[in-house]
Design a protein around this nucleic acid. Structure first.
Lengths: 224, 224
DNA sequence: ACGGTGACTGACCGGATAGTCATTAATCCA
DNA sequence: TGGATTAATGACTATCCGGTCAGTCACCGT
């Protein structure tokens, strides 16, 4: 109907004409959704923009997701980490020094966070109070699980006398914070740093501080 | 101006009739705005809710702020930190050990962040990409300035042989992260921790790690 | 090549809310 | 006390966007 429904060049995009790709749509929509939601936040994100970035029209998005919230939740759940499971196995099987184990796990986290997970963390943190159920789920499934892993590493190191005695529960939080914040930061205000501090320097210094702060002195530790 | 500078005045105000209080309105609206924006984010926050929490009707809000964005910006700028200036003077004048200076400054930050500043940080981080100019301003005026302060402390400690040599620029970031993240966290997912880790334990452990990680091996430094 | 299936489209609807303004009434002052 | 001033109100308008669906056309089987 209306104007030019069938004229050849409708869009400036020389893109593929309408195609039937049922299997690929959901994943493409979720990809686009992660991008847009992480950029704008839930309320400010427009479904039509998500759809367009995925190369389809708005109606198509509603073919695969019943509403905006469902798309949002699907996007959040998409990126969740199997990497944690990897770390969990490492902790069980590790034979060597705890410092090495810790570094390995932090390295894995750094990689995960550097991917889309960073923007997602920002999104969840920002929207937690608007989506309590989603927040609770993410907290249990990702945050708490990651903390448990970190506590296991710390406990192992202390038990073997490699790490000095610390408040394990609190230290697990403290150690995770820089990574988490860095991930969020680089998706928001970090963009306004004139010469951006490279990820490498940040992580290297971070490892350095953590290990220096944890390792046991040979004989007695000095009181503070 | 002086009237009811923060919360002493009638707030739930069950029966107060319409009152003319031109001087007090802007501050009350900004207070309410910080609350609502930090809770919902910019797009999901409703002006009418801000107005109601401030004890006025929607129209009144538009009497004092031309539009939603202006109210948002006013809210962000309201809470900005004179505490940083305090730290800057400390660094210039400090005579004693750098560790003590560092602890003092981190303590000040902890207090600022624990106040409304925490929710605000979450807000700014979440909305940075929707308000680039505001983000740039905040980055320069708060984040970068705080970093500069931290670098000054670290440099001082290194110059005096109290701290071991580190990558100052990167370390300033690393050290600030846990505080910043903790502030954001406690305003979002932290609410879903079943037994919340107390601020005291978190900060104590954080200081502990930082100082243990920074202090030089052979502290030839005990100063006045 | 052609007809049927269903993936895809986009105009449209309705609800929500940013922003306006004529009206109301609190306060001032002569 | 009454009239002038203006802070405050809330009904109203305009707009935006989530969600719908009648219609279109890409692909497949025959």
């Amino acid at each position: 109907m209306g104007v030019a429904s069938s004229t050849a060049a409708a869009e400036p995009a020389p893109a593929q004409a309408r195609r039937r790709r049922k299997a690929a749509r959901p994943a493409e929509l979720i990809d686009a959704a992660i991008e847009v939601f992480a950029e704008k936040g839930f309320a400010a994100a427009r479904i039509e923009e998500v759809a367009n970035r995925a190369g389809v029209s708005k109606g198509t998005a509603y073919l695969y997701f019943p509403n905006k919230e469902a798309l949002f939740k699907a996007a959040v759940q998409e990126v969740v980490v199997t990497r944690i499971a990897l770390g969990e196995r490492d902790v069980e099987e590790w034979q060597g020094a705890s410092a090495e184990l810790l570094r390995r796990i932090l390295d894995q986290w750094a990689q995960v966070i550097r991917s889309r997970q960073g923007g997602l963390l920002k999104l969840i943190v920002a929207e937690a109070r608007n989506f309590p159920d989603l927040a609770a789920w993410y907290h249990e499934e990702v945050a708490e699980r990651g903390q448990r892993l970190m506590r296991a590493v710390l406990s192992r190191g202390m038990a073997r006398g490699e790490f000095r005695p610390v408040d394990v529960e609190a230290m697990a939080h403290v150690i995770a914070c820089p990574m988490a914040f860095r991930a969020i930061w680089s998706h928001s205000l970090g963009r306004y740093e004139t010469p951006q501090l490279s990820e490498e320097r940040f992580y290297a210094t971070y490892f350095d501080l953590v290990l220096a702060g944890l390792l046991a002195e040979h004989p007695a530790t000095t009181e503070m």
